[in-house]
Amino acid sequence: MNKLILLTITLITSTLYSQKLKGFGGGGVYLNPAFEKSLFVNLNTGLEYKVNNLIKPEIEFNYYFGSLPDASIFNEANIQTSLLVRTTSAMGINFCPKINLGDYEDKVIFQIFTQFNIYNVTAKGSLFTLNSNQTNLIKTDSDEYKEIRYSFGIGIGMLFELNGNNSQSIALNLVYSNIEIGNAINKLKFNGVIETRQSLGISLKYYFSFKKNKNNIIN
């Protein structure tokens, strides 16, 4: 995993000042049934490479994090005895073939893309037990599990070009992903079965050019 990241950074650095490259940063929120009322959050940064006005693939570095709802544990008398707290995070690389469709003179572009992800998932769980007076929770056990996972995603969105000396734009995307963080959570020693393979999210990205556009023409 570390060698793959290093190789990717080396390739990016070798062409960093090319006018065909744009940097970007952004984030998104994902809905998943396992998280109930909670959201699964994504932060990202990366580079877009312009093959032509139609094809603009991306490489993206991602960080995901979220918390499952706390699970209360009761005894036979229906009295709460403990509380289970679980969190999960993932860090990885996303290769994203992307097609842009539209009139650049109008500065609004429709885009379609796919995502191929490799990421390292970390799941953590802590068990808190109520004291004899039922007033304080005391941490009595904890566990952690890590694994490498792969996933695929697909999305559509709108790209809005902005004015300025540099070529800048903002993209609003709707993304479907089968990123799997539930398997790591299931490996925790005091957890049940969680299924998190189906996620729907909204993401926002800001793109910027590394070089000034002297003619103020959209790249």
Rank of each mutant, 00 (worst) to 15 (best):
S199H: 01
I118K: 11
N219A: 10
G125Y: 00
L83P: 04
G153C: 03
Q111V: 06
N42G: 04
I156E: 04
P69W: 05
Q168A: 10
T45F: 09
P97Y: 05
Y150M: 07
N52R: 01
N191H: 06
L130P: 02
T13A: 14
N178K: 09
L172T: 09
T129S: 09
T45N: 12
L68T: 01
G26D: 01
K212T: 12
I154P: 00
I12W: 06
I93L: 11
F160R: 14
I202F: 11
I138A: 05
S126Q: 03
K20A: 15
A184L: 05
P57G: 14
D70S: 06
I170Q: 07
N219T: 12
S126V: 05
Y63G: 04
G164N: 06
G182Q: 06
I118L: 09
G25W: 13
A71N: 11
Q115S: 10
A90L: 04
A77R: 03
K37V: 12
N78H: 14
S151K: 01
N216F: 13
D103F: 14
S199R: 02
Y17G: 09
Y30V: 03
F160W: 12
N52Q: 04
Y17Q: 13
S132E: 12
N166C: 08
S142T: 08
L83N: 08
E48S: 15
T122V: 11
A171P: 01
E58I: 01
N186K: 00
S132F: 11
L7W: 13
Y206G: 02
N186C: 05
K146W: 10
E105L: 07
A77K: 06
S177N: 07
R197H: 15
K50P: 11
L21R: 06
F74R: 00
Y206M: 03
Y206R: 02
N52G: 05
I59D: 14
K107V: 04
N216K: 10
G155R: 00
K139A: 11
G192M: 02
E147I: 09
S82E: 04
N100E: 10
K212G: 04
Y150L: 06
L188K: 02
K56Q: 11
G164F: 11
N117A: 07
